[in-house]
């Protein structure tokens, strides 16, 4: 058990947590309650008309083909998993390389961390400018020098690939910092002992370094999935706007689009509630496993 401190004034602890509770209430509980409430209604944006429809907003999402919610869900899964795998594996590889005794290591490290300073929205704009079929430099090169038919405005595979690359590029820096810190905390004598026992570099990595890194990796896995699912909205917004068709409209993009642009508040609220449940689920997983694994 942790140490406990007895407050002399009875009400003081409550008073001290009050500001935090007020913030949580105003910015989390109140809007969440409103979202749940609104998800049961069909309403006009000005709040003049409210029609209670029960679970209809949810039912439409799950059964109505034209809402394309299932499609949006699967695109989000593919997207988040791809971003996670790509961003984590590449950054682990680069962190291992940067952790070696190489010349100008700090230069490499700085360069690697840099993209994280770029706001997600700006990252989207950067990639847009490179790859847009009408104005992009890389797009021009692909089309005119390599003869590759680059038209992500109509080709779903290309659009999704571009989004995954753009989102991973930015997230790699974050992963890199954590992996590098993790690698630097691996005791050198473990490695030396293993080397003396005749373990090659690959064996040393998989048998010693990788297990020691596993709490970091697990933490990053959760963070990357959350990033892929929820924080990549600006990239989608900038680069594809959910197109071609509806094929890259990931869940968070769809919530925003349906609510803010299309003013369908009922459906948008229902979608937010579903997202909220997903985040709660992910958080529970994170706490249960990380709490357990962190004391290896």
């Amino acid at each position: 058990m942790a140490k406990q401190y007895e407050f002399r004034i009875k009400g003081l602890p409550y008073l001290l947590v009050l500001p935090q509770m007020v913030i949580v209430f105003i910015f989390f509980f109140w809007p969440s309650a409103q979202a749940i409430w609104q998800s049961f209604f069909l309403q006009d944006p000005f709040g003049g008309q409210y029609i209670f429809v029960g679970l209809e907003n949810y039912r439409v999402l799950f059964t109505d083909e034209s809402s394309a919610y299932a499609q949006s869900f699967w695109v989000s899964v593919v997207f988040a998993v791809s971003v996670t795998v790509l961003a984590m594996s590449l950054s682990l590889f680069l962190a291992v390389q940067a952790n070696k005794k190489i010349r100008a290591a700090s230069f490499y490290k700085t360069m690697m961390i840099w993209p994280y300073a770029v706001a997600t929205l700006i990252a989207g704009v950067l990639w847009l400018f490179m790859f847009n079929p009408n104005v992009g430099v890389v797009a021009w090169f692909l089309k005119h020098k390599l003869g590759y038919e680059w038209q992500y405005l109509l080709n779903t595979g290309q659009a999704l690939t571009l989004l995954i690359l753009a989102a991973s590029w930015r997230q790699m820096s974050y992963n890199f910092v954590f992996f590098l810190a993790g690698l630097q905390s691996v005791p050198a004598d473990f490695i030396e002992a293993a080397a003396i026992d005749g373990a090659g570099p690959a064996r040393r990595f998989w048998k010693i370094i990788f297990p020691i890194l596993s709490p970091t990796s697990f933490y990053l896995l959760v963070m990357n999935l959350v990033y892929g699912f929820f924080e990549t909205f600006p990239i989608v917004h900038q680069v594809t706007a959910g197109g071609p068709g509806k094929s890259t409209a990931i869940l968070v993009y769809k919530v925003w689009r349906d609510g803010v642009v299309n003013l369908d508040l009922g459906s948008s609220s229902a979608q937010s509630v579903i997202l909220m449940l997903m985040v709660i689920g992910l958080t529970v997983v994170q706490f249960r496993f990380i709490e357990r694994r962190v004391n290896y």
Binding site: L153, L154, N155, P244, K246
Partner: peptide, 12 residues
């Protein structure tokens, strides 16, 4: 939006 999306699906 439906028109725009469907037009892209037609062209694809």
């Amino acid at each position: 939006e439906i028109e725009d999306q469907t037009w892209e699906d037609i062209l694809a």
